[in-house]
Amino acid sequence: MGCFSSKQEKQTPGFQDPVALAQETIFSVSEVEALYELFKKLSSTVVDDGLIHKEEFQLALFKNSKRESLFADRVFYLFNTKQNNVIDFGEFVRALSVFHPSAPPEDKIEFAFRLFDQKRTGFINREEVKQMLIALLSESDMTLADDVIETILDKTFAEADTKNDGKIDKDEWRTLVMKHPSLMRNMTLPYLKDITTSFPSFVFRSEVDDSNT
């Protein structure tokens, strides 16, 4: 009885070999298999097709599939490396790997940089930061006068833009983050440390011994 589902799941659209994913990421094979439990749950809440649609992503984050968020859009966009508007299992595992407590800090810094570099210029410019600041205020039902927003941006760029060219490059970003570690607070998910105990059911069916990988 306990062995019936493994082959079926390997034929599910979006499923990828846990051994290969474990080799590419920080997760063990058992952890990748446990993440598949989570992925199955998230990818079946609106359309049960083995892929995470943006509405499903929003539903998981906000418990509301219709809630629009520039930030959730940015995160979805960065997870969806194939840029086809759905997150498959491989994309899900590779992106979450960056959020593991033991993932290299440089990977987290890079991911956060790309979050802000919306136009993919290799720099974070003032307009991009302003747009996100306004989105944050709107999300929090807060308003700030434009001159206050400009003052916050002046202060931010005076500190971060050490080359004084009006934009923040990767090195400047890294220096800023080192000074303000709280900027990276969203880049680590403690849940990922205990993923096999949170989503254990796949692990009990695993065909692969982690000690061999």
């Binding site: 906000f62 418990k63 968020s69 930030f71 959020f99 600041l133 999300e139 206050v148 971060a160 800023l176």
Partner: peptide
């Protein structure tokens, strides 16, 4: 008036949309 103590990135990092812990919660 109170001085502004947070920079823009600190404020932005407070967004719920950037906190992925929701993916793991029921």
């Amino acid at each position: 008036t109170k001085p502004i103590v947070m920079n823009a990135f600190e404020l932005i990092s407070l967004s719920r949309g950037l906190n992925l812990s929701g993916l793991f919660e029921e």
